[in-house]
Lab assay of single mutants.
Amino acid sequence: DHDVVPEDKFQETLHLKEKEGCPQAFHALLSWLLTQDSTAILDFWRVLFKDYNLERYGRLQPILDSFPKDVDLSQPRKGRKPPAVPKALVPPPRLPTKRKASEEARAAAPAALTPRGTASPGSQLKAKPPKKPESSAEQQRLPLGNGIQTMSASVQRAVAMSSGDVPGARGAVEGILIQQVFESGGSKKCIQVGGEFYTPSKFEDSGSGKNKARSSSGPKPLVRAKGAQGAAPGGGEARLGQQGSVPAPLALPSDPQLHQKNEDECAVCRDGGELICCDGCPRAFHLACLSPPLREIPSGTWRCSSCLQATVQEVQPRAEEPRPQEPPVETPLPPGLRSAGEEVRGPPGEPLAGMDTTLVYKHLPAPPSAAPLPGLDSSALHPLLCVGPEGQQNLAPGARCGVCGDGTDVLRCTHCAAAFHWRCHFPAGTSRPGTGLRCRSCSGDVTPAPVEGVLAPSPARLAPGPAKDDTASHEPALHRDDLESLLSEHTFDGILQWAIQSMARPAAPFPS
């Protein structure tokens, strides 16, 4: 592969990997390779389809078979030569091979799209000592099968071997295949498990690692696999990028399955594409389908809103127990993405979901129960707010008499603000006073009005108090039968009158 990737590009890729991570280095090298001529790309395919690569990765054979028959990708048995050289000459001794072996032994695996480039050397060096003999053996194999790289107009793939297949390693990572398949204008990513390549439709969760975000852009890794992070704060999961590491605690105790298979379609829109997988259930989501939507993949363990709600429900009964003089119970939860139609709101002032922060849900004790107040519409209280300059209440639009249902020339009671006709409430011909108009209920007259088809109010509507207090003497005590009587009149003013009279009014101040 030294004929494909020059030394300066190799060093530039290593520097970019240390600065921005393996995914960015892979993407940059792939983009550079696509700008080369067809001879360089053909050399790339020839390096990929060597015999030892085909033996190690069985899924490469179907890719090789898909090439046109007129494309010669065979390799000479006596060494490598550029395709432009007409004579089959043995190339001179390859010093770059020693360079590659020494550099890969030092860096474990470079971040390139060629056999030198995919593992994360920093994480491997940190986690190597417990498994040094086995990992050293794996390093000797890295130059042979560490990076199976493929690129063409139909298929483009980048393979990364790992030393996680050490025997006896619980939940060992089998390997990473960062794979971009450009077929019919689409893009897919796969993962390699035990020599087999699994596409998103049959993606397997190998051991402790999972394909957290099938994305090839942005600074985030394709698999949430930063070796420096180790395990999740809650004892979460091992990262795919942690090559040759000792077994780590796999999943939280509440995880239903340690080796679950995540779905390959969004649980909201039932469509495929780039998904984020939940650590607590097999569901996966688009970032845009979450509520609120996320802009980037959160670091650490992530769970959907259903799993978060289940966790909150487990903690909430203990938080609601009476604990005198104790601060509110704080339950730190990872930043969760909410699927459509589901929402768990945190306290005000918290950062938005999706940031690399930890939301704190506070379970406050329930407030003391209070008697429910009568629910009145805002339009129902409008007549009470229509007060004239002299303190006389004006008529609201649409006000109707509670007896006849007519809204023409209605009066407004100064005591309960109900609309009424003087002739309907006082049919006996009582003279109307000039000021202080009161309806039949507030004036103490319980004589029913002779209106055909309208039920008369119940005599129990009024329960006047002592006459010594004029204001308190007109406080009506309405009961269920009074409400039914008012409802039978089918008037809004009657219902409003009952609601206003049912509310307690402050006692009249004593004259000074």
Rank of each mutant, 00 (worst) to 15 (best):
G429M: 01
A508K: 03
A399T: 07
A267N: 08
G465V: 14
N262G: 09
A251G: 10
P368I: 07
T301G: 13
P293R: 12
S254C: 11
R295G: 06
P324A: 10
L250T: 10
R295Y: 14
A449N: 13
P509M: 14
P466S: 11
S379N: 06
D377Q: 13
D406E: 08
G494C: 06
P347W: 14
T301M: 11
H259S: 05
C401A: 02
S369T: 09
V454I: 11
S458Q: 10
R432Q: 04
F426K: 07
E274D: 09
S443Q: 02
G244T: 07
E350M: 05
E263G: 10
G346L: 14
C416F: 03
D271H: 12
G453E: 05
H286N: 13
L258S: 11
A460I: 10
S431R: 09
V451G: 12
G405C: 13
L287C: 08
H474Q: 08
P282A: 05
P509V: 12
L384R: 06
P433L: 11
Q313M: 14
A371E: 09
Q309E: 09
P448S: 08
E274L: 04
G244Q: 07
H286Y: 09
T331W: 15
R440C: 09
D482L: 01
Q313S: 11
A472S: 10
T358R: 12
T471D: 15
P335F: 15
S458V: 08
E296Y: 14
G388A: 08
L294G: 05
T471F: 09
A370D: 05
H286V: 06
L333F: 10
R400T: 07
R400Y: 03
S291K: 04
Q392D: 04
P464H: 08
L294H: 01
K468G: 09
H479T: 06
A284D: 13
T331V: 09
G388N: 08
H421M: 01
D255L: 13
L352P: 04
E265S: 07
P450T: 15
C269S: 06
L462Q: 09
N262I: 08
S443C: 05
A499L: 10
I297F: 08
S502V: 01
R505A: 02
S431I: 12
P372Y: 12
E390V: 13
D493T: 01
P476T: 08
L333A: 06
I297P: 14
S306V: 10
P324D: 08
L455D: 04
P509K: 03
